[in-house]
Amino acid sequence: MSTWQTVMSLSSEFLLLINTVLFLLYLWRHSNVYKYFSGLLVVSLLIEIITHVMWFQHKENKQINNLYLLHFYTVVEFILITLFYDQIFKKHTTWRKYVYWFICIVIGLIIANSIFLQKLTEYNSYAKTLTQLIFIAYATGYFLTASHNKMDSTFKRITIINSAILLYYSGSLFIFMFSNVFFDLDEVHLIFWVFNALLYLIFQLLVFTAIWQFRQTKSTYS
């Protein structure tokens, strides 16, 4: 099982690297929607690199708890994904009016959780669950509002990214929600993390499909 997790983790990390490079090369300057998503990919890649460096140090008997990275990542991930959807929902007056208040309140809750409930050295399952539920709501909201619109090429690419977000965060919601419960149960813990790695691989594959579509459209028009 551990081999599967390694294979899937490495595949998804490799895809994350490719997607980040491709996003920065082709989509970064194209529009703000892609800019924020590129930011998310860059931060994810950096966190992965730092985690690996720490893991190697851990193997050399230098015990380092890297869970505070997850606390940091939760905040950055929330901001970037919200800004990504802000570009999509900004035409809606209510969203535009309250989005920054909403960001501040959620960040406040995440920080409060890290200070009072689940310390930086603990798994921040409450904050992760909250942000994941928000992401699912964003993705669902996108589908509900976009189902009446005409689908152009940009819209198609965003729809693929949105599908990736909905699938990944819906599938991994319960894994993160109960991560503290099965943290000590090695076998169960591993099964769910392999499943999470598989979902992340699907997420990266879908993002890759969106970039591929972008390249296809570009070559058709050029």
């Binding site: 993705a139 589908f143 189902s147 729809t159 599908s163 909905l166 699938l167 819906s170 599938g171």
Partner: peptide
Amino acid sequence: ALAFIVFF
């Protein structure tokens, strides 16, 4: 999630 995507 899948149902949503298919429906969309």
